[in-house]
């Protein structure tokens, strides 16, 4: 490889990879459920991206990186058993952090009781739906990006998301959170 090509690689790394570190770390955390594993997975992704960066056309860097991250994750799982279930301790800490505090039923902005109920409804979802909600609603991925990360068709992302939201809406309604006067 020439010096110029190497310089191009370094520039491409800075242009395409570094701005996506935050989202890569979030998605890696969603996949591994463990901070140390997530960091290792992103590091692995960066290394693979750096090695193949001269074949990248510069379009949709996030989608490109998420594909690499997905493959890196699959390879790592061949070596070690993945943590399949959500980190229950983290889930409970999250619930504890969101379900107490201010009592303002009319607030449409940050309503901690509402957030607590949403967190409960989210953690009550079946694993497959919860993963889609986690990527799309919590981490802000697009449908195609979530499909890439989970290796499922985009139509499945859409149907799982729809079912998950319907389920959460029903649970919130049953908990007394209605549009006219939330509990």
């Amino acid at each position: 490889m020439t010096i110029n090509q190497e310089r191009d690689r370094v520039a491409a790394l800075e242009q395409y990879v570094l701005p996506q570190l935050d989202v890569l770390l979030r998605v890696a955390l969603a996949l591994t459920r463990n901070h140390a594993d997530a960091e290792d997975l992103v590091q692995d992704t960066m290394l693979r991206a750096y090695r193949s960066i001269d074949r990248f056309d510069g379009r949709y860097p996030r989608a490109w990186l998420l594909t690499i991250l997905r493959h890196a994750h699959i390879n790592r799982n061949r070596r070690q058993r993945p943590a399949l279930l959500a980190d229950q301790d983290a889930a409970h800490r999250q619930l504890a952090a969101t379900s107490d505090g201010s009592d303002d039923p009319e607030s449409l902005v940050v309503d901690r009781k509402f957030d607590g109920a949403v967190a409960e409804a989210f953690y009550a979802l079946p694993e497959s739906s919860r993963r889609v909600v986690e990527l799309v609603d919590i981490n802000g991925l697009g449908y195609q990006e979530a499909a890439t990360v989970l290796s499922i068709p985009i139509g499945t992302v859409m149907s799982r998301l729809h079912r998950a939201r319907a389920r959460m809406r029903k649970q919130l309604f049953d908990d007394g959170f209605t549009r006219k006067g939330r509990r």
Partner: peptide, 15 residues
Amino acid sequence: ETITELKASLRRLAP
């Protein structure tokens, strides 16, 4: 509106 509020609340769950 409900889905929008749900999405906003889920977003606040982001670690």
